[in-house]
Computed example of a mutant assay.
Amino acid sequence: MATTRIGLDRLPPAARAAIEEHTGPLLTVEETTEGFNSEIAVRVTSTTGTWHIKGLRTDHPRAWTQRREAAVAPFLTSLAPTLDWHVETAGWDLLGFEALNGHHADYTPGSPDLPEVAALLRRLGETPCPGIEMREAEQRLERYAAHPDDLHFFAGPHLLHTDLNNANALVDVHAAQGDRARLVDWAWATRGAAWLDAGYWVIWLIASGHTPTSAEEWAAEIPAWHTAAAEGIIAFAAANAHLWAEISTADPGPWTLRLATASEAWHAHRTIG
C-alpha cells in the first residue's frame, strides 16, 4: 500500500533545522510524485547544492527501510546516487541523496533506454554484496513459492535491488557511455541468487509491452541470467505470479493489476509455452 505523502513544510522545526545544517537555507523545494514508500520525497536546492530528500517517521512500520538504504548506500558506487547525509531527529528519519539528472527509464519495446538498464544490471552483477544485515531472497518469497523445495533456487550470496520499477531506473543521456543509468530506492536490497534481478526486470518489461520472449531476450543480456536453471526460472515466475495476485487483490489499482497480468503471462509462458 502507498504511504501518504506530506510536504517538507509539515516537518517539525527541529527536523527542518537538521536538514539545513547539511544544506544551508533552502532556496527551492520541489515535491516529487514518484514512489510509494516515503512520506517525504522532495528535490531541494540551496546555494551549496541540490539533493533528493526522502523520509519517514521513526515510528512508521517501514522505518527500517530508511536504515537499510543508509547501510547499503556506501557500497553502491556507480549504481546509485551518493548518500550525502542521514539525520534522525524530532521523530523523523531523513536521507539526503545526491540529486541525479536524467529521466525515468522507458521500458517499452525499442526504447533506447533498454541497453542502458542492461548495462546497469551488469554492473550490479559485478558488485560485491556487503556484509550488512539484509533480507534473503528465499525468505522474501517463502510465502509465494509453489513448493518449499523451490526456495533453494532463490538463495545466493549476491547483492540484489529487487524493485525494477522503471521509475527506479534513471537514465542520463549526457553521462559517460556505459555509466548512464542509476538505480534509486534500495529499501528492498536483498541477498540472493545473482540472476533474480534480471527476472524481476522481465516482469516489468512484460508490463511495459514486451512479449515474454522479448523480455527474456533482454534478460539474457545479463550474464547472471545464464546461471539460472530452467526449473528455477519457472519457480520464480510462479512465486511472483502468486505475489502480484495477492497485491492486486488487496490494492486493485491500474499498476498492480498490470503487474499481476504481466507476472501471470510470464508464468504461463514458462509452463505452457
Rank of each mutant, 00 (worst) to 15 (best):
V44A: 13
L56C: 04
E88L: 01
N101A: 14
I53Q: 02
A80V: 06
E98C: 07
G102D: 09
P61S: 09
T47E: 13
V87M: 07
A63I: 04
S46K: 04
W85A: 12
A73F: 08
A73I: 04
S78Y: 00
A41E: 02
F75A: 13
G49M: 02
A105F: 10
A41N: 15
I40D: 02
L79A: 10
E69L: 05
T48L: 10
V44L: 08
P61R: 11
E98S: 11
T48H: 15
I53D: 00
W92K: 02
Q66S: 13
L79D: 03
S46H: 09
G96W: 09
A80G: 09
T50M: 13
S78K: 10
N37I: 05
L76C: 05
D59W: 15
N37Q: 14
R43A: 12
T58F: 03
E98I: 08
I53G: 00
T50V: 14
D59F: 13
G49A: 08
V42L: 09
T82R: 15
T89K: 05
H103W: 08
A80E: 05
V72I: 15
W85G: 07
I40V: 14
L95I: 06
A80Y: 01
W64Y: 14
L76A: 08
A41H: 15
T45F: 03
K54N: 14
H103G: 03
T50S: 15
A90T: 07
R62Q: 14
W51S: 00
L76E: 04
E69F: 07
L95T: 06
I40H: 03
R67Y: 14
A105P: 03
L56K: 00
E88K: 04
E88N: 05
A71M: 12
A105K: 07
D93F: 00
S38R: 08
P61V: 11
W92S: 01
G55Q: 04
H103K: 10
H104L: 03
L95Q: 04
D106P: 05
A99R: 13
E39C: 05
T65A: 15
V44Y: 01
D84K: 11
E39Y: 03
W85N: 00
H86T: 02
T58K: 02
L83S: 09
F97A: 01
D106F: 06
A73T: 07
H60L: 04
N101Y: 04
G55I: 00
L76R: 05
D59T: 15
K54A: 03
F75P: 00
E98T: 12
A73G: 06
A90L: 06
D59Y: 14
A80C: 10
F97D: 00
P81C: 10
F97G: 01
L56M: 09
V87G: 03
L94P: 03
A73V: 06
W92A: 01
F36H: 11
S78M: 08
H60Y: 12
D106A: 11
D93P: 00
